[in-house]
Amino acid sequence: MRMSTHSRHWTSIAAVTLVLWSGGNAYANYTPGKTTTPSGPSGKANNQEVSASVSRIKVTQVSGPTGGKRGSISSTDVNWTPPPCWYEPVLTPEQLKALSEENGLGYVGPHTSWGGEKLWTDHYRDGKDAYNYKDDSLTTVKGYKNYNIGKDGYFWRGVAPDTADPESWDCERVMFWQDAGQVPAVPNAPTPKTLAEYAYDKIQVPDTEIELKPEAKSTVNAPTWVWLDKGTFQEVKVRAELPNTNLYAETTAKPVALHLEPGTQDSETFPGGGDCEINEDGSIGTPYVKGDAGRTPPCGIKYLRSTGGGEPYKLSASVTWQITWEGTGGAGGDLPDGTFETTQDMNVQEIQSVNR
């Protein structure tokens, strides 16, 4: 059962308060409407190593267009969101020693920071227990001897891209040790799927610039042909890797359909519903050629009322991208489809015929 956000904030604050020893201060990063970020430590640690929200996941584009106008896709499933938090390897023993003894200011969890050298040295150097929030309960964890210097591994800490998300409190364990080459057996430990979902909103797809005939200005009751040449849209693949683990995932966005919204109810779409499938060669629709004026386009629109010199209609064109992923150990699966939408002005004229 999940605790209320308010209760969990104050539980964490209570935990930090109980950690107080002489010579140090502790505080929780909770001020309504305000986020407090400690300044960076000196020595071998840096701002990224004490940040509560910066992930170390490295995302690179493997294939697909990289130039021109591009943007992020939006999930078609309004109930789907990327993971709110997970754990990552953050510091080596030497880096933690530098942070503790040269600065003593940084986060031990997404919402909890310790300020003051003694808080760090008591727990990570001198073996003293610390209060810990895990699995919806307040407990204690045993301390470490001399920062585990001489051991091969990393101290792991929770990462929450959006600390305002109530579910980001699920990764509030105090920074803990894990031997090298291993992923900790704790709830919200990272998996290949975590990386695939993290990479979802890092995907950049090309702008939807459709070809029209006639261009920008249509005629009442005359079809406007819409198409995209082959090669305009290609698969986009990104690779996400979590350093100091063997975890990776490749997330692929494949264009599968174009959807048209004419911008007015006084219109028709071809095909009905406005969904134009992508052809086998990667094109959408069929380019207009001379002599097609009387034909119905496989992908297009027809306006039934003119704009009359007023505001143009807003023609919306959105491409649906099918999202799949594969990663470490042969893992893989599907993620919700994504869309990327652009709009353009459409002026519609009405041609009067005169009978003599």
Rank of each mutant, 00 (worst) to 15 (best):
V236M: 02
K44T: 15
P82V: 07
V59Y: 06
N79L: 13
N148V: 14
E167Q: 15
W80E: 14
K314V: 12
E197W: 08
T264I: 08
V205E: 07
P65F: 00
D345R: 09
V159Y: 00
N188I: 09
S75L: 05
E117Y: 00
V90T: 14
E280T: 09
G327D: 07
A45F: 00
D207H: 12
V236G: 02
T342W: 05
I203V: 02
S168T: 04
P166L: 08
E209H: 08
I149H: 03
K254Q: 09
V186G: 03
L260M: 13
D229Y: 04
A185D: 15
T31Y: 01
H9N: 13
E49L: 11
Y30R: 02
N148D: 13
D129P: 11
T224R: 00
T163K: 01
K58D: 14
W156V: 07
I203R: 00
P192E: 04
E88Y: 06
Y198C: 11
T343Y: 02
L258C: 04
A52E: 04
T252A: 09
D207Y: 08
P271M: 03
T140C: 10
L212H: 05
T36P: 08
W21S: 07
A45M: 00
D337E: 07
G115Q: 12
G332L: 09
P298C: 11
A160V: 13
S53W: 02
V159I: 14
Y124V: 07
S316D: 03
V226L: 15
L212R: 00
D126H: 15
W21L: 12
L258H: 05
V59D: 11
K34Y: 07
I323D: 02
N25F: 10
K254T: 07
T328A: 06
A52H: 14
L260E: 05
Y144G: 06
Q178M: 12
W321M: 01
E311D: 07
M175W: 06
Y200Q: 06
P190H: 13
G40V: 14
P255N: 10
E172R: 05
Q61L: 06
G333K: 05
L260A: 10
G310Y: 09
P214D: 06
G23P: 14
Y198D: 06
L335D: 01
R173C: 11
M1W: 15
H123R: 11
L247Q: 11
G272E: 12
D337R: 09
D179Q: 14
E268C: 02
L335V: 05
G67I: 12
W156N: 05
P32W: 00
T60Y: 01
A257E: 13
G300A: 09
Y288D: 02
T269R: 05
V319G: 08
G300W: 10
Q61K: 09
T35G: 04
V19K: 10
Y154T: 01
N29T: 08
S316N: 08
G327K: 08
P93C: 06
P298R: 04
E94K: 13
V289T: 14
E280D: 12
T264E: 02
K118H: 13
L258D: 03
T5A: 03
Y303H: 03
P187V: 08
Y131V: 15
S137R: 13
V174W: 08
V19W: 12
P166W: 07
A196S: 10
T121C: 09
S113F: 15
E280N: 10
S55W: 01
P41I: 01
